[in-house]
Amino acid sequence: MPDTAAMNRDEIFTHVQSVLEEALGADEEEITLDASLTGDLEAESIDFLDIVFRLEKTFSTPDKPFKISQGELFPENLMENPEWVKDGQFTEAGMDMLRERMPHVDFSEFEKNPEVNKVAETITVKSLVDFIERKLNQ
């Protein structure tokens, strides 16, 4: 069982790499920090569920369970508010919501053309590492 509180970014990355190797059948060398889960590693929606389950298992310790709530890591129900989406694109309000809900994702490229059906591509291996690092330090 890893001492998760003392983990540095490199160690987190190594664990994330093994999770993605197992969940997506991806090769270690493909799983770089910049790799997009859906774009480069060919993750499908159900793989996100698998990844969440595996991350919880990997980063939980008997003293400190690592629990990821629904929608915490990957966005859900993005269409529920008409103020967030217009003509298939996120509005400014929608982008604000995304930045707030998902501080682990870098939206700087995406916001130039914020198509709703491409939002999953913004999630990279780095997003996962940032998410876990932030959560372990809470």
Binding site: I46, L49, D50, F53, E56, Q70
Partner: peptide, 10 residues
Amino acid sequence: LERIDGNGAS
């Protein structure tokens, strides 16, 4: 059962 939530289970 390893894990279950609203989306599914493993």
